[in-house]
Design a protein around this nucleic acid. Structure first.
Length: 366
DNA sequence: AATACGGGGTT
DNA sequence: AACCCAGTATT
């Protein structure tokens, strides 16, 4: 019988977490499942530093499930604008309404019920479960995958379904008997602060003594990186239709990119803006001028945007569909917009500012 | 099993 | 410029 040479990793991580983990992030030191839930959703594929200010503003505006559930989707998206992965916000909102209707306004405490809420998968359900309720469910996020890929010397890319299955099994097997929340936090904090992708701090790692990658001198190469394909490129034209101090925005469909956000009309590069405005919106326009060109990079493609400004002297008599809306420039910039659209409108606002200053100057001269 | 879904940070 | 990040839902 071989004696166990080292303490279980859960034991070491719990001790490490208590001494060296992070303890004062805005969503820590609470067992309020709502506060924890919001943080976990924001932290999906998004780093702590980027989340903090969004989280504080969001919690101030939507302090509890009821206030979130009763808000408009528009309002919720506005507080998410700039964070990305907008389905997270739509699902959060939808889930709050489900909790009001199906759980009497109380966050469910059953693991399956938690995971059944939209936007909450196995790992997020496990994180909420352990932090808020002390349930024993394994988490498996990017940090855990990296720590395990190194500790267990897993050579293949952790995103492979076969490897992922193994990782979940390991995650289950490593669960402690108690202190679930401290363990889960320790695993993630260790991954985020010591077992980092580059320049990991193996010198002070509580798992170094029996880490497979450390023993094999393979830490730098693991975890294996995702096999990449060339990212496609797309070029579009965006129209900034201006009438007096207002611009025309279009609400995007629920599903697909930038779902539910306000954007600008998109055209192929070959199409003529004025002709399109006349045909699609019965809107005469003139004075087309290039406004700005920019490139927006997504995970899965690169989007080149060429923004054109058009002046609409007279509004058509017929009311437009509700997905079209004239907003003042100031109003538009504060709406729920994707980042590149906000940038385009800021360029316009800057021009507007220069023009109105020149105008004021003229008035002063007269 | 593969793909869609953002934006920001690091190197 | 490549790569990654407290993943989930859809196809």
């Amino acid at each position: 019988m071989e004696p166990k040479p080292f303490a279980p990793i859960a034991e070491r991580l719990i001790a490490w977490q208590k001494q060296h983990g992070r303890h004062d992030l805005p969503w820590q030191n609470t067992t309020d499942p709502y506060a924890i839930w919001v943080s976990e959703i924001m932290l999906q594929q998004t780093q702590v530093a980027a989340v903090i200010t969004y989280y504080l503003k969001f919690m101030q505006r939507f302090p509890d499930i009821a206030s979130l559930a009763s808000a408009s989707q528009e309002d919720v998206l506005q507080y998410w604008s700039g964070l990305g992965y907008y389905s997270r916000a739509r699902n959060l909102h939808k889930a709050a309404q489900i909790i009001m209707q199906q759980h009497g306004g109380n966050f469910p405490q059953d693991f399956e019920a938690i995971q059944a809420l939209p936007g909450i998968g196995r790992s997020t359900a496990a994180a909420i479960s352990s932090f808020a309720f002390g349930l024993s469910q394994p988490i498996l996020d990017g940090n855990v995958k990296r720590v395990f890929a190194r500790y267990f010397l897993i050579e293949d890319w952790p995103g492979l379904p076969r490897v992922e299955k193994t990782l979940w099994q390991l995650a289950e097997a490593m669960q402690p008997e108690s202190e679930m929340g401290v363990y889960a936090q320790g695993l993630m904090d260790m991954g985020a602060t010591l077992c980092t992708r580059t320049r990991p701090r193996c010198d002070i790692c509580p798992l170094q003594e029996d880490c497979g990658a450390w023993a094999a001198n393979r830490v730098k190469e693991l975890p294996a990186s995702k096999p990449r394909k060339a990212v496609p490129e797309r070029t579009v034209q965006m129209l900034v239709l201006c009438h007096a101090d207002k611009v025309l925005l279009e609400k995007r469909p629920e599903s697909g990119i930038w779902g539910g956000l306000w954007s600008l009309p998109e055209l192929g590069l070959e199409q003529d803006g004025a002709a399109w405005a006349m045909q699609a919106l019965s809107m005469p326009s003139s004075g087309a001028e290039p406004l700005v060109q920019l490139t927006h990079v997504f995970t899965h493609f690169r989007l080149h945007i060429s923004a054109q400004r058009l002046t609409v002297p007279v509004l058509p008599l017929q009311a437009q569909e509700p997905r079209w809306q004239w907003m003042s420039l100031d109003e538009a910039i504060h709406a729920a917009l994707p980042v590149p659209v906000r940038k385009i409108l800021q360029v316009l606002a800057k021009q507007h500012h220069v023009v109105s200053n020149a105008h004021q100057g003229q008035l002063a001269l007269i």
